[in-house]
Amino acid sequence: MLFGAASTGKRVFTTSSSPGISLMQEAISYMAGAQLPVVIVNIMRGGPGLGGILPAQSDYFQSTKGGGHGDYRLLVLAPSSIQEAVDLMMLSFHLADKYRNPVMMIGDGMIGQMMEPVEFPDKYEEPELPPKTWAATGAKGRPAHIIKSLFLDPIALDKNSWILHEKYERMKKEEIRFELYNHSPKNEIMLIAYGTMARICQTAIDALKQEGISIGLFRPITLFPFPEKQIYKEATKENIRELLVVEMSTAQMFEDVERAVYGKKKVNFFGRTGGIVPPPEEVMEHVKMLLNKKSKDKKKA
């Protein structure tokens, strides 16, 4: 349905929760191949299979690595508050049109169910976009537009794949978004978390500060393109000794962080799944464990 609706050139979106998104993967692959701008929201629940219905972040791989078959990526945004969800929603339609590519916003049951006050801008200003000359509007006085992903000629398919690839490379240059929280040269540990988990980390950071422990947070807002270089830059600062990735999954974004720091720093992981949202206290405990371990290492040395 979304494929058909997007082909009209109008702005379209759909939303579901993990198993429903899995069902859509076939069409998402087709839409990426046909270069259709659509927005898809996935409010992630625990999996695999039917899993549970409570908040999770376990569709990270599915969202950021394609999801369906074929050589493609989605532009993936991850808000951590309702206000940010509102802001990114507007942006996502713009980005979908800018790149003629599906954009996926991922949240979890917290973002899905929570209520917070939000402000809508009176007017949404966005940079001008080229007209949608590719849309199917009836071939009156012009050659027919065929919106498709079938390229039987290997040379044509190769060409299409590289056109897509070029878009993804351009996204990496132009669209990376992230936020730093409490960064200071005193920090020995840097947390990396997105979405709801990042908010929980912020509270943990504030509470640790009260106890005289200073650590920082790197929060990716775009998960694809992933802020690899930015993480590398922060992680390789001299004061940072170890990283701690916190997710509501079994170490998915963790792999991208490891790749980003290129073995320069040790990357640790803490996560819960199944709909368990770890409270700030659990994050604090893990940070303290890392710090204790290190002070012991120091003594040994």
């Binding site: 219905i53 917290m110 908010r199 929980i200 912020q202 943990a204 949202v277 700030p280």
Partner: peptide, 27 residues
Amino acid sequence: YGPEMRGGTAYCTVVISDQNIGSPVIN
């Protein structure tokens, strides 16, 4: 929230603050 329509337990948490609110999960 849970899957049962009736008879399940229900609870909600409200946080009110002058500062930006971090974790919505409060143990």
